[in-house]
Simulated scan of single mutants.
Amino acid sequence: MTRPAQCLLVLYTGGTIGMQLGDQGLMPATGFEARMRDRQARDGQKLPSWYFRELLPPIDSASMNQRNWLEMAASIREEVDAGRCDGVLLLHGTDTLAYSAAALSFLLLGLPVPVLLTGSMRPAGTPDSDAWANLFGAMQALHQGLEPGVQVYFHGKLMHGARLTKLGAAELDAFAVLPRPRTGPRAPAIASALDYHQPRRPVSLAVLPLYPGIQAAQVQALLDSGVRGLVLECYGSGTGPADDAALLATLTAARQRGVVLVAISQCPQGHVEFGIYAAGSQLAATGLVSAGGMTREAALGKLFALLGAGLDQAQVEHWFALDLCGERAD
């Protein structure tokens, strides 16, 4: 249900938006609340009431990890459950913003208020910065009313948190929702084990693209590192070197010992549909779960949220195959 937000939590994690110049270049900095309030006053921005919370130390999002995701989710849960806010704006660096938006989409299932992420390609206060337009635009979007769930506001666009990816390293219009086909059954309801109140823990995951010449021994070495889930980036509609018996055996053995294997397409406009080619069917026979048209960011974030909740292999595979928040189906 769409409701205009009246009191926003602004959760600051660092990133380019608040960076300042140091001896080695731009670095994350504290003190962003005062800069926000000063700019709002100077611009005469009419915004909903808001209060500020920062995660310390502020970080460059290139250093983002699972524990940061858990800290963000815990902070949001604490403020929402205490009734202090009816909307959340999370300020984040752009390098891993799409990863965090995807992870939070699954960590915050059932949260009754909207969460909106934004950041900037140029720091606030620099010439031609996009910081204030993104920040105040996001606050206005929350004030106008958004459905509960995680979204991203960037360069004037609202985007689904579990569908977007970063396309550019310099352009201000840096993010887009890829035109990937999205089909798949929706979950009839969100299980209590996946609710945003459910505690999570870090889990060892890996992402591996297939490429010509990949060797079974290389895949085995990755699997032997202790990963509990692997996102395999396949060709086209979910194909791979199906004539490599050693590689197929390596994947089969990994699944048999409890590793969750999921498949995404390497193609920007692709999706996994194993049955089209024999090579896809043979790869699927190792136990790979199709991610359909999900992005790398969404597949990794979803796998983390499911395994991190303590679900067993069969449960993870079951819920991964269903649409939980719009990541798989329109």
Rank of each mutant, 00 (worst) to 15 (best):
L307Y: 03
G308D: 04
K302I: 14
R328K: 15
W319P: 15
L303G: 05
D323P: 14
D312W: 02
T295Y: 07
F304V: 06
L300Q: 11
L311P: 04
R296H: 13
A305E: 08
D323M: 13
A298G: 11
H318G: 12
H318R: 15
A314P: 00
D323Y: 11
L324N: 03
A321P: 06
A299G: 03
E327C: 10
L306D: 04
G308H: 01
L300Y: 15
A314H: 14
E317G: 11
L303W: 00
G310Y: 02
W319F: 12
L300T: 13
L306M: 09
E317F: 06
L306K: 04
Q313M: 12
R328F: 04
L307V: 09
K302D: 05
G326I: 00
Q313A: 15
D323H: 10
E297V: 13
C325Y: 04
Q315I: 06
L300K: 01
A299D: 02
A309N: 02
T295Q: 10
E297A: 15
A298R: 05
E297H: 12
L324E: 01
K302N: 08
F320K: 04
C325Q: 13
W319E: 14
R296N: 12
T295P: 06
E327T: 00
L307C: 07
R296L: 12
T295H: 11
R328W: 01
A305C: 10
L306G: 07
E327A: 12
R328P: 08
